[in-house]
Design a binder for these strands. Structure first.
Length: 569
RNA sequence: UACCCGGUGGUGUAAUCGGUAACACAGAGGUUUUUGGUACCUCUAUUCCAGGUUCGAGUCCUGGCCGGGUAGCCA
């Protein structure tokens, strides 16, 4: 019976609608059991958490069904694309934990084949060279509710089209003077089918093909061909391409070549976040953030620098699943996945962010004791370390209140608490400066409580983290909050835009923080938990002389919740 | 007001094809605890509307309503 239960909980996972299609296709042998997906970014920007959804979908399906997933750059617009983006995208995909073999693929590698197929379409009378300007093309296209009208160049002879097209390629014409269009139906209710442009003239250097070409294929023409050439089985893309599918199908069928199946899904939206490339660019350009990898950015570079783990992002992508309707995922769900992973994997250390000096009046002046501390209670294999303890220490300012409310059970005058892995201490005296600020606590420790337990069995209600003054490392700590104050930053009133909802307190920099000495040799992107404070990550700005940490996420904080509730009531 | 797509708790999904609406997050309460963390337990709350088919509808049909996408020589 136990075994049956185990089998049930480990039973088959529910399939989302795309995996359902793939599973059905495998069963019916539609693609001879093959599964080949692809992730096709344009190298014109940095990847973000929304791309991670697509990456995990495509690579995940390939892995689960014993197939493959191609990383293919959709680089058909030389004006926007750069090698730097290619490199960063490759890095991000690998960082997320996906493998795509030695070879990355590029749409631009297929330019010659695409050209040949364009010629084929001309010969079949299904494409023509058009001399209309961009503006005229727009007018001829009609509107959403009105049909378009035929271009005066629509009925050129095959010979003339062939001649003109080869001269377009040869560079005889200026940018924008001519296009190659598919000859479909200018009255089609789907605007994408109203003689769409296949090639435009662009005398621009391409990041890979250099000056080899001065005509470049449009996405609608190129994308299906790329899929076809690679033998993709399931071409998974976002919802806005749904209206393009008939054209995708039309091209492939007109050419009579291998025809993958396109499937669309809804892109990711996250609360308190913007996701469009344009808006993210604005944040960078207008210096609302420090760059593309600012730890507040939803870019993979930003999340990485913030301290997010690839595992957390992958489990998030799995849990949100995939569907065909727009939805907005609660940021708290991403943080949940993050904490779930970090709790399991992060070594614990003690760090005091806002130090309050504590002097143990009955502790020998020059004594140092090395206390054994557990590195990770969730992982016994992580072992232990020793932390120095001495007469002068720091605790968190928030861990002391001169006049504590009922639910506060940390340190207060006359009250006893435990210093983690060390001793019970009692507060005897509060020292203030001329302005009445608390600057120091005089306390006594109980030598009998070494390690943290009282032989007489008495209990304390709180355990505090601490750092010994003489051995402390100084550090800068950057605390982050949501970049926006509104769940949906894009829902704006008249005359405003999303930057009006920027959170002015999204970054708080703390200096003079005290860290236990075990972190002396920490390296950029190392992750750890500062006990009771949250998950942190060493920033790339960190040096041996100046340590810098980013707060990845707070721990769940029921005390903060109580405070918030009492403040609001 | 053209065409396409879609509506399941507060949020994200599931219900294996017509058979007891479930899981997670969030929220509330509690147990354990040398992290007010973790773990564990309890609770709150759901099929857009109206008809129809059926013993039985979240699922099928019809009609509404609501939401999203589309008029780049961008992808």
């Amino acid at each position: 019976m136990t075994q049956e239960n185990t089998n049930q909980t480990a039973g088959p996972e529910r399939l989302d609608f795309i995996r359902q299609i793939v599973a059905d296709d495998c069963k019916t042998g539609k693609w001879d059991g093959r599964v080949l997906t692809r992730f096709p970014p344009e190298p014109n920007g940095y990847l973000h958490i929304g791309h991670a959804k697509s990456i995990c979908l495509n690579f995940g399906i390939a892995a689960e069904f014993g197939g493959r997933c191609n990383l293919r750059f959709d680089d058909t617009n030389p004006c926007k694309e750069e090698q730097e983006y290619v490199d960063s995208i490759i890095h991000d995909v690998r960082w997320l934990g996906w493998e795509f073999g030695e070879k990355t693929l590029f749409g631009s590698d297929y330019f010659e084949q695409m050209y040949l197929w364009a010629v084929d379409l001309i010969q079949k009378g299904k494409a023509y060279v058009c001399d209309l300007t961009a503006e005229e093309t727009r007018q001829y296209r009609g509107t959403l509710t009105q049909p378009g009208k035929d271009s005066p160049f629509r009925n050129r002879s095959v010979e003339e089209n062939l001649d003109l097209f080869s001269r377009m390629r040869a560079g005889e014409f200026g940018d924008g003077t001519r296009t190659l269009k598919a000859k479909i139906d200018m009255a089609h209710p789907n605007i994408n089918m109203r003689d769409p442009v296949m090639y435009r003239i662009l005398h621009a250097a391409h990041h890979r093909t250099g000056d080899d070409w001065c005509i470049y294929p449009m996405y609608d023409w190129a994308h299906g061909l790329e899929d076809s050439i690679e033998g993709i089985t399931h071409s998974i893309c976002t919802l806005e391409f749904e209206n393009h599918r008939p054209l995708y199908d039309w091209f492939l069928d007109a050419l009579g070549i291998y025809h993958p199946q396109q499937i669309e899904f809804a892109r990711l939206n996250l609360t308190y976040t913007v996701m469009s490339k344009r808006k993210l660019l604005r944040l960078v350009q207008d210096k609302f953030v420090r760059g593309w990898d600012d730890p507040r950015m939803p870019t993979l570079g930003g999340l990485r620098r913030r301290g997010y783990s690839p595992e957390a992002i992958r489990s998030f992508c799995k849990i949100i699943s995939v569907n065909k309707f727009n939805s907005t995922v609660d940021f708290a769900l991403l943080e949940h996945c993050l904490r779930e992973d970090l709790n399991r994997t992060s070594p614990r250390v003690m760090a005091v962010l806002r130090p309050l000096k504590v002097v143990l009046t009955n502790y020998p002046d020059d004594q140092v004791e090395w206390m054994e501390a557990v590195n990770n209670p969730e992982d016994p294999a992580a072992g232990t370390r020793n932390v120095p303890f001495s007469k002068v220490l720091y605790i968190e300012q928030d861990d002391f209140m001169e006049e504590p409310p009922k639910k506060f059970f940390r340190l207060a005058p006359g009250r006893e608490v435990r210093l983690r892995y060390a001793y019970f201490i009692r507060c005897d005296e509060v020292i203030k400066d001329a302005d009445g600020n608390i600057v120091e606590l005089r306390c006594t420790y109980d030598p009998a409580t070494r390690g943290g337990d009282a032989p007489d069995g008495r209990k304390v209600k709180a355990t505090l983290h601490w750092v010994a003054d003489a051995h402390a490392l100084d550090a800068e700590v950057r605390l982050y909050d949501h970049l926006f104050t509104k769940e949906d930053p894009e829902a704006v009133e008249e005359g405003k835009d999303f930057t009006d909802h920027l959170n002015t307190d999204s970054l708080q920099t703390l200096t003079g923080c005290k860290i236990e000495p075990s972190l002396k040799d920490t390296a950029p992107l190392d992750r750890c938990q500062f006990e009771r404070m949250g998950y942190f990550c060493t920033d790339p700005d960190s040096t041996a002389n100046k340590l810098v940490f980013n707060r990845t996420a707070t721990l769940k904080d029921t005390w903060a919740k109580i405070q918030k509730k009492e403040k609001s009531s």
